[in-house]
């Protein structure tokens, strides 16, 4: 596996090239409406300056909350579906459920990032939080109805938005801060992902243990957690709503456009 991984990574590393200067895809038209969208800056912001803006931290919080909810699902997917459908879904099918989530996670990267090109990053993130919140809140009802297919479908959509959150983040950063140091800003933003990697599993496991300790049946031990995750997404919605265009004072003076 290590050798295969090495070979594929080397192939990728040596294959990727910068396009020739001035190259554009066939049919590409230079966007002329950029200045009409206030969420897309024409200026440039350095990485050091970006973390001094409220926009960065609102986006950081939005990513944290989206990933915390999504990573919680990935963490609990296999035991959850077996406990919600005891005797119906066994370990083999639960593994298939996890695999299916991975496919939708990957599909979300393509689908939601493409949507964000059409409707904008902020609207796309708003959709993640609104739709995600509704779906999380619907999970206990779907589980109680013992509707396995609908249960799987709900989580597939949820997890597609987890992937979509990652896919649209670099473009969101580029829109807000320009391309000057967008890689470094993205690196700083991904600390939200690391924080969510700790918070998500901690939250889901402690809540489940608490529910079981209070005598709640295993099949219902995730219900309250789902409402909490829906609440987190509501907070994420507000945080995303607060993202406004970056003030001109944060732009690089030499690169500032009139």
């Amino acid at each position: 596996m290590g050798l295969i991984y090495f070979a594929v990574m080397m192939f990728g590393a040596f294959t990727v090239r910068l396009p020739a200067p001035g190259w554009t895809p066939d049919g590409y038209k230079t966007p002329i409406a950029t200045s009409q969208n206030k969420m897309i800056t024409a200026g440039q912001v350095s990485a050091d300056e970006a973390i001094k803006t409220p926009q960065f931290w609102f986006l950081w919080a939005a990513l944290l909350l989206n990933v915390t909810a999504g990573i919680s699902v990935l963490e609990m997917a296999s035991p959850m579906i077996q406990e919600v459908f005891p005797g119906v879904i066994k370990a083999g099918a639960a593994a298939g459920f996890v695999g299916l989530l991975s496919i939708f996670n990957m599909s979300g990267l393509f689908f939601w990032s493409s949507i964000s090109d059409k409707i904008g990053r902020k609207a796309t993130y708003a959709l993640y939080f609104l739709l995600g919140g509704v779906l999380y809140a619907a999970v206990p009802g779907v589980g109680a109805a013992h509707h396995a297919i609908l249960f799987v479908a709900v989580f597939c959509i949820i997890i597609s938005m987890y992937g979509g959150g990652f896919a649209a983040a670099p473009a969101y950063l580029r829109d807000l801060f320009g391309t000057f140091q967008v890689g470094a800003i993205h690196g700083r933003l991904l600390t939200a992902w690391s924080a969510a990697g700790i918070a998500g599993p901690l939250l889901i496991n402690s809540m489940r243990q608490l529910q079981l300790a209070h005598g709640v049946a295993p099949s219902q031990a995730y219900n309250q957690t789902m409402y909490v995750l829906a609440g987190l997404l509501a907070l994420g919605f507000i945080s995303n709503l607060l993202v406004r265009p970056v003030a001109k004072g944060h732009l690089q003076p030499a690169l500032r456009t009139p």
Binding site: V88, I89, K90, G92, A93, A94, A95, G96, F97, G99, L100, S102, I103, A148, I149, V152
Partner: peptide, 17 residues
Amino acid sequence: GVYQTVLKSLPLLRGHA
């Protein structure tokens, strides 16, 4: 990988496994 995953998840779509 996608084919294998879909194969494994087919029982889910039948509602039992």
